[in-house]
């Protein structure tokens, strides 16, 4: 294939990736509006967002095709993959600690059960240190 044809292939692939990424970002917006409670909304905020961003960056990299800026895009993708779960975890933990999680909407809630069990245990034995905090 000639240089021109490679360019066209890269452009088409880039367009497909951009479309996929935009669709996933749109799904994230729909999800965060529709889901019933805080923890489910965090799902909408983490997963489509990460893959959507990765696809958009791949599309951009296919379009730019020059060496320098593409490495920074790899960096952005790696940052997002490393930090999105951490942000979601902190929001979830803050949700539990401020009482924003509604146990009645969940099928099973083992974290609240364990926390209550630990509280009962701590109140029964005030001299023992709770190993978990």
């Amino acid at each position: 294939m000639t240089q021109d044809q490679w360019t066209t292939v890269a452009d088409v692939a880039s367009a497909v990736c951009l479309l996929g990424g935009a669709f996933l970002a749109f799904a994230a917006g729909v999800g965060v509006l529709r889901f019933p409670d805080l923890l489910a909304r965090m799902h909408a905020g983490t997963k489509p967002q990460v893959l959507g961003l990765a696809l958009v960056l791949i599309g951009l990299a296919l379009r730019l095709r020059s060496g320098g800026a593409v490495w920074a895009l790899v960096l952005v993708a790696v940052f997002q993959m490393l930090t999105a779960p951490v942000a979601a975890h902190m929001v979830g933990r803050a949700g539990y600690r401020t009482g924003k999680v509604r146990s009645d909407l969940l099928v099973v809630d083992e974290l609240t059960d364990d926390q209550e069990r630990a509280q009962v245990r701590d109140q029964g034995r005030p001299d023992d240190d709770d190993p978990r905090d």
Binding site: L39, H43, M81, A84, G92, Y96, L111
Partner: peptide, 15 residues
């Protein structure tokens, strides 16, 4: 925890 947060259906809330 990181990998479980990024893959199907689950999200780490507390570790």
């Amino acid at each position: 925890a990181e990998l479980c947060s990024l893959v199907p259906g689950s999200l780490v809330v507390e570790a």
